[in-house]
């Protein structure tokens, strides 16, 4: 598929000129209805007012700690949130609204997910047969052989069961299965957990190759170092919302180019930097307050910060959600 360029599309992705808008999420909120004792219900808001955009040819890393809402964002885009979830806001794919019907139609073809672990594969099925079941069009066997050649997977590997694969091969099988239908938007959720650095690099290179062919890749990870190896821009998540969107290049030195106090603290806490953590922890959704959710841990807090959630504002070719961003 070719992508036609329309100058208007550049407006939506300010970071990284030259990218055409592929995915645009604006003001997304996700809540869960929970039934408590008796018939009492409560609505738990887990994602609030989230904005991100991704162009083709671009890798956007979504970085955040456990429970910050990264996977839920992926599930919202794919339309696979559980039934008790309520979603509001707007998701555009190729400038058109991504409705539940459209999600269902293009999930697995246009938009695809690279899952975190081989546990997503059927343990009782040889991997080549399994990858064939993902094929939507044409001859499944040919498609599988072609994609295995591309990812350097031998016939012997194809005859193995998932548990027999080494870490590196498992990553290649998962990517093959995900991209076999020529997807344009690839969402990779923690694709390199606890892997050897060489396998991490190999996996990231595969993602980069896909963007070179015009795909857009959303790389979800808790690990800022992994994200920095390959991403063009980084969306930092905290307590269910984006607090900063920045070109990856702004992570350098003492973090002086970064905009949000949390992003700076994250950078400084890396072992290759200060390794000095700020105290405290991310609040759980049940304890979300009205104001800035980072306020209890922030050294720059003022009375303004606890009143209302700061809105996302443009700052130095990035975006930040903070009343006192620098």
């Amino acid at each position: 598929m070719t992508i036609e360029y329309n100058p208007d599309d550049f407006k939506s992705t300010e970071i990284g000129p030259g990218y055409k808008s592929l995915l645009e999420v604006s003001d997304l909120s996700v809540s869960f209805v929970q039934y408590q004792k008796g018939l009492r219900q409560r609505v738990l808001k887990v994602i609030s007012n989230l904005d991100i955009s991704l162009g083709s040819g671009e890798i956007l890393a979504v970085v955040g700690s456990s429970g910050s809402g990264k996977s839920l964002l992926a599930h919202a885009i794919l339309g696979i949130l559980p039934n008790n979830a309520i979603c509001s806001g707007k998701i555009l794919y190729k400038n058109e609204l991504l409705t539940p019907e459209r999600q269902k139609k293009i999930r697995g073809s246009e938009i695809t997910l690279v899952p975190q672990s081989v546990n997503f594969l059927d343990p009782l099925m040889r991997v080549s047969a399994q990858v064939r079941t993902a094929v939507r069009q044409g001859n499944p066997e040919e498609a599988q052989k072609k994609i295995f050649r591309r990812y350097d997977l031998s016939e012997g590997v194809g005859n193995q069961y998932p548990f027999q694969l080494s870490g590196g091969m498992a990553r290649r099988v998962l990517i093959s299965a995900a991209v076999i239908n020529g997807s344009k938007l690839i969402i990779a959720d923690e694709p390199t957990p606890g892997l050897h650095p060489e396998i991490v690099t190999e996996t990231l290179n595969h993602l980069r190759e896909l963007t070179d062919e015009g795909c857009g890749v959303m790389l979800i990870t808790h690990d800022i170092s992994t994200a920095l190896q390959v991403a063009d821009k980084i969306a930092v998540f905290y307590a269910g919302t984006t607090i900063e969107i920045t070109p990856a290049a702004d992570f350098h030195g003492q973090g002086q180019a970064l905009r949000h106090p949390y992003t700076k603290a994250l950078w400084q806490s890396l072992p290759q930097n200060d390794f000095t953590p700020i105290p405290g922890f991310q609040p759980l959704p049940a304890n979300f307050s009205e104001g800035c959710l980072f306020a209890p841990r922030c050294g720059k807090i003022t009375s303004e910060c606890t009143g209302s959630l700061p809105v996302m504002q443009d700052l130095r070719s990035g975006k930040v959600r903070c009343h006192h961003a620098t």
């Binding site: 700690s65 994250l266 806490s269 890396l270 072992p271 390794f275 953590p277």
Partner: peptide
């Protein structure tokens, strides 16, 4: 700490 974010990792290790 392989599955943890950098701040939590540093907190636990320190």
């Amino acid at each position: 700490t392989a599955m943890l974010d950098a701040i939590t990792q540093a907190q636990i290790w320190q």
